[in-house]
Design a binder for these strands. Structure first.
Lengths: 101, 101
DNA sequence: AATTTGCGCAACCGAATAGTTGCATTTATA
DNA sequence: TATAAATGCAACTATTCGGTTGCGCAAATT
């Protein structure tokens, strides 16, 4: 796969789309209303998000509802994870708490 | 600023550079040895990372050591944060624990 | 049945990207 | 002092990106 999640979230418009879809599934037209670009431009972003499984689609008649797949964000989180202790000790405390459970 | 941290981590080579620099500060030449590209290409990536404060430089004679600035990763983490509860309940437990402290 | 709506797909365009090579400058070394 | 090493900067190139417009098709509406 050529595109990965890091490429997907690199674009501000795509991050906005993700945020919107996290609140509720939407159609391309509904999404496009939130931006100053054409529906086709939004559709291209959706396509990129779909390519790396950040969103999934669900057809309903002639409409297509796109759903946010939160699990994919885990990949980013796991990469960030290794740096977390370098910037904040709070998470070390959390790790200790977890180990005690 | 045109480039942001999300753009910085979009490129696989730049993520590798970040990972290397997180272990220890290095010079462009030393970094370039880890990749199949020219030193100049690596320097370009470093420049982008420097532009958005992911790395800082420290001159030492004719060598320049680049240091990783972990704090910048916080910005990514804070954006991911809002999705965390959507994929994993473990972090909700953690939040509860924190509130009890 | 005719028309409107929602959508994907393709072609095109200017700007940015990631790489290259070549060169100038400063610092270390012989 | 002459040379080698480390780096940044500029010019060039092929590719990708984010956007546009135009189109065709299937589903809803009239």
């Amino acid at each position: 796969m050529k595109r990965d999640i890091f490429h997907a979230i690199a674009d501000p418009t795509r991050r906005a789309i993700i945020t919107l879809l996290a609140l509720q599934a939407m159609t391309p037209n509904a999404l496009a209303e939130h931006f100053n670009t054409s529906r086709q431009a939004v559709s291209k972003h959706i396509q990129i998000l779909a390519e790396c499984d950040v969103v999934t689609q669900k057809q309903s008649g002639r409409e297509i509802y796109y759903h946010f797949n939160a699990k994919k964000m885990k990949e980013v989180d796991e990469w960030i994870e290794r740096f977390r202790q370098l910037w904040d000790d709070k998470f070390n405390q959390l790790d200790d708490l977890l180990n005690d459970l």
